[in-house]
Design a protein around this nucleic acid. Structure first.
Length: 337
DNA sequence: AATTTCACG
DNA sequence: ACGTACGTGAAATTA
């Protein structure tokens, strides 16, 4: 439509129209927002509303996913046919879909138990950064605590904007972020993003040296590993192509963190299943979504199951800092969140 | 069959 | 000069 001078192209030379591209064009033409809204509705309808009812099992009257144990590079599970690890939650219309996931009958509730900030906790434990460890031991709001440190203010002086930036930085760090990436995500100048990253590593110096050591180990050994010694091989770590090498370096930083989190929840799943069996409970573990377990719980068993699940998840793979699990119940999956 | 887009952690 | 945050899977579109 000629609403931008240098339209972005995909690698096959077509016009790129992904969400990030379109969002930069919303002020150029009134149709752009309408396209974004249309896309969202189309996605939700085709992927969930239309597809899921087709997958109801004739015998059980329920839908059953398949969990794949040997697909991902990091040790996570993946879920197919249908994928129940990407059920919507972020938008209001998406949340309507999540409400459709309900307990087996009126005598049951759904119980959702999720690890709180698990990847940041693992990064604290792996890096042994004293300030990050200290924040978790004190039970602080980790994004606010990070904001206070990187912006040099007291906890009380942290504004919502400072916290938002620190939160994005925290997630970015786990992925091996660049100043460019952070600036894009926060819509701030690259210089400011670079300052935030510099401040982050000044305030959490052991995080910086831990990340450097991940890359160093990958170059020396050809792989990195998780807390439970799961390896990810990184054959591109010494590539002469800077782009290819950069991806491998970010993998070297991220894989031990994401993979150790997967180690932890897998151990928790085994031990929780055993504990429910040993106590002859009828409640069932029904879903895993990377840092969350969902149970179909007999109402009379709620308190006992809650205790067991918290205990088994929190003690599955002890770190040098507390592991916290948040638990909620509800009459549908959204309410249990 | 490959690519693009977008849903989740 | 160049590209630029990790891990997935499904549906629609393009080749």
């Amino acid at each position: 439509m000629k609403i931008t001078d240098k339209p972005k192209r995909t690698k096959t030379k077509q016009y790129a129209t992904g969400e990030e591209v379109l969002r930069k064009l919303v002020n150029k033409h009134e149709i752009v927002n309408k396209i974004l809204e249309y896309r969202q509705l189309k996605k939700l309808k085709s992927t969930y509303v239309d597809a899921l009812p087709e997958l109801i099992n004739m015998k059980t009257g329920r839908i059953h996913t398949s969990y794949n144990q040997a697909v991902t590079a990091t040790g996570r599970l993946s879920s197919t046919n249908p994928n129940l690890q990407n059920i919507p939650i972020r938008t209001e219309r998406g949340r309507e879909i999540r409400k459709a996931f309900v307990p087996r009958d009126e005598h049951h509730v759904l119980l959702a138990a999720d690890y709180s900030q698990i990847e940041l906790r693992i990064m604290a434990a792996l890096s042994q950064d004293e300030h990050l460890i200290d924040a978790f031991r004190k039970g602080l709001d980790i994004h606010a605590a990070t904001a206070a440190r990187i912006f040099g203010v007291s906890l009380e002086e942290v504004t919502s904007d400072m916290r938002r930036k620190a939160k994005t930085a925290n997630f970015g760090i786990i992925y091996g972020i660049s100043a460019f990436g952070l600036s894009e995500r926060l819509s701030i100048p690259r210089k400011e993003a670079a300052h935030i990253i510099n401040a982050y590593f000044e305030q959490y110096p052991a995080v910086k040296s831990y990340m450097d050591s991940c890359i160093h180990d990958a170059k020396a050994l050809g792989y990195v590993e998780t807390l439970k010694k799961r390896k990810r091989y990184l054959p591109d770590i010494n590539s002469k192509n800077a782009v290819v090498r950069g991806i491998a370096e970010r993998n070297a930083i991220n894989a031990p963190i994401q993979g150790s989190s997967a180690d932890m929840i897998k151990i928790a799943m085994i031990n929780t299943f055993k504990a429910l069996q040993e106590r002859k409970l009828q409640s069932k573990m029904i879903l895993q979504v990377h840092d969350e377990l969902v149970f179909d719980v007999l109402k009379t068993e709620v308190e006992e199951v809650k205790e067991i699940v918290r205990e088994e998840m929190e003690k599955a793979l002890p770190l040098s800092i507390p592991t916290i699990v948040d638990i909620k119940t509800g009459d549908n999956w959204l309410e249990a969140h």
